[in-house]
Design a protein around this nucleic acid. Structure first.
Lengths: 208, 208
DNA sequence: GTCTATAGACAGATAGAC
DNA sequence: GTCTATCTGTCTATAGAC
């Protein structure tokens, strides 16, 4: 039990450090210190830095899917669920726990390390496309809306929003980008039901 | 002259390495080797790694602005110029020479290193907003279009497109995201002039 | 399971000769 | 301006005692 607990602590410490400092920027030494574990302990439970990183990335991918699905599986209109996803509370300046890793050449070069990123973003795009398709089916959106294309744009705008915010040193660009996209999406709204007037709400509403 | 030439080579080598491997992943040693310069030479011209990186990032920012403005200052409709910017030839899997650096904590922590990112993205958003505003003024786009918001979304989708492409190990997600955004923008087109039918072109047209 | 010792390679920079 | 030598610390991992 103590061993399993140590392994879990090591994975969690690695998750945090990968998020904060990336793969190159994360050393076994730093992991051990944050986990409160020694050298021997770490190398007993894991084969080394790549092995530990793979376990950490898989876990972060699960967490991300859980967080996203919590918004997308809610009750309510398709438009509201997409808006809920775009505006869910985020520590914007921390960036995306997965997306940030895509910048690292050592991550994209390792198939096992890259796979969780690839799969998670593919899943997210499919999940968003389903919601948009549903909205098109029930008349929330016009028939011209392309669910797959818009889903890709939504995921990209979130990832790029993080980049702009970190570059600016402030969260505003993230919200301006996501609200800008939401306003474009609302131009497809047919105006049936509660969706009307959503454009104004999208632009002025501040995400908490 | 030989000294100036060496300094230039060092800066160019640093630009390449920052793009490929990021700030943490770039060592003085690697810079010297790529530039064909020795230790003493590098430390004669520059104060160290941060100093050299600042010069390299400033130069990369200039290059990026030049490339973007080449598309946005063309002749043609606002819609065509935005589409030209989104579809200009890119080595998608290399990512953005500036945006990728925003992931690095050492970059965002150094004001001099972060400033070129911040300023360049701010300039790009303003420049795109001007083009969109022009398109709204001449009736290409409807009056409901929000230039600033859409401009932020465009820049974010490009940055996020890089993230999705590198995560997938393939350029397609980048083009799906940018084409998806372009299709949404076309929903604002008033249909006057050559803009009509642009939606189909946006979705099916493959960027070289 | 966890600890300490050890090791070769590299990071990042300084010093002084030429 | 450029070169070589040198230095302290860290990276990542292995070995073997406990």
């Amino acid at each position: 039990m103590s061993g399993t607990d140590t392994a879990r602590k090591l994975i969690e410490a690695t998750q945090e450090l990968l998020w904060e400092r990336g793969y190159v920027g994360t050393s076994p030494r730093a992991i051990q210190q944050r986990a409160g574990a020694g050298q021997g302990s770490m190398y007993h439970h894991f084969g080394g830095k790549p092995d530990l990183a793979r376990a950490a990335v898989r876990r972060s991918a699960e967490e991300l899917r859980t967080l996203a699905d919590a918004e997308l599986a809610r009750e309510g209109s398709a438009r509201a669920r997409v808006a809920g996803y775009l505006r869910r509370e985020r520590e914007v300046l921390r960036g995306c726990r997965l997306g940030g890793l895509a910048q690292d050449p050592d991550v994209v070069a390792d198939p096992e390390l890259r796979a969780p990123l690839s799969q998670t973003f593919a899943w997210l795009r499919t999940r968003l496309a389903e919601v948009l398709e549903e909205g098109r089916g029930n008349g929330e959106f016009g028939p011209a809306l392309d669910p797959a294309g818009v889903a890709a744009a939504i995921v990209a705008v979130v990832q790029g929003g993080y980049v702009l915010a970190r570059s600016a040193g402030a969260p505003e660009p993230f919200h301006e980008a996501t609200d800008g996209l939401l306003a474009l999406l609302d131009a497809h709204a047919t105006g049936t039901g509660a969706t009307a007037g959503a454009v104004t709400g999208a632009v002025t509403g501040a995400a908490s």
